[in-house]
Design a protein around this nucleic acid. Structure first.
Length: 189
DNA sequence: TAGGCCATCTGGTCCT
DNA sequence: AGGACCAGATGGCCTA
């Protein structure tokens, strides 16, 4: 479920229970599967789409200007069923994406707080983590480290140095906490 | 209350 | 042809 305990929105659940009106199949309007038929011509699934469909999308495919709806040549009911299935697939896809984000959160060391990392924070930390590890690997492979016990300590120092650099370059205050955590993390290992 | 974050819906486009 | 991917839009929840 949702990490924030967000309640399932009633307005979102309309697709799982299509209204009988859909079967009337008299309205050729593309968004006619919306539950509120009186507004269907403008409001589609909680989004106001009618005002932006005329070519402001990023990808119009270079096909000459326009709204070009795939008609599928099917009835309204068939289209609504397809929409339902498509919504479910999209939901599953997003769930898989979120699972991947969660796996990434667990893969990168970060400051332990009650609040979980947001997606953008996760990506940023992962990027910095990869950069730091890359730096260390390159450094170790090129420097021919001497045998002995100083290796891990040198790595930790390098790691901290790298993060200091990122901190200066990007000015992200969040890295300060990360840095502190990484310090203890590297010392603990 | 405003802003951030998120889940979901939606339709267009890409890919197999 | 149909599924995957993508991005815009919307509204709910949470926090400062």
């Amino acid at each position: 479920m949702k990490s924030k305990g967000k309640a399932v929105k009633s307005s979102r659940r309309t697709w799982s229970d299509p209204e009988p009106e859909l079967e009337a199949d008299t309205e050729p309007e593309p968004g006619s599967s919306e539950q509120e038929g009186s507004e269907a011509s403008v409001r589609i699934g909680g989004s106001w789409r009618g005002s932006l469909r005329s070519g402001d999308r990023k990808r119009q495919g270079g096909v000459g200007g326009g709204r070009r709806r795939r008609q599928h040549g099917s009835s309204t009911k068939e289209r609504s069923v397809r929409r339902l299935e498509s919504n479910e697939r999209e939901r599953q896809r997003m769930h898989k994406l979120n699972n991947a984000f969660q796996a990434l959160r667990e893969a990168i060391p970060h400051v332990k707080t009650d609040k979980k990392l947001s997606k953008i924070e996760t990506l940023t930390l992962a990027k910095n983590y990869i950069k730091a590890l890359t730096t260390i690997v390159l450094d170790m492979s090129g420097a021919c480290l001497p045998a002995g016990g100083v290796q891990s300590e040198a790595s930790a120092a390098k790691l901290l140095q790298c993060y200091q650099q990122h901190l200066e370059e990007e000015g992200e205050e969040g890295l300060t906490q990360y840095l502190t955590h990484m310090h203890s993390f590297s010392q603990g290992s």
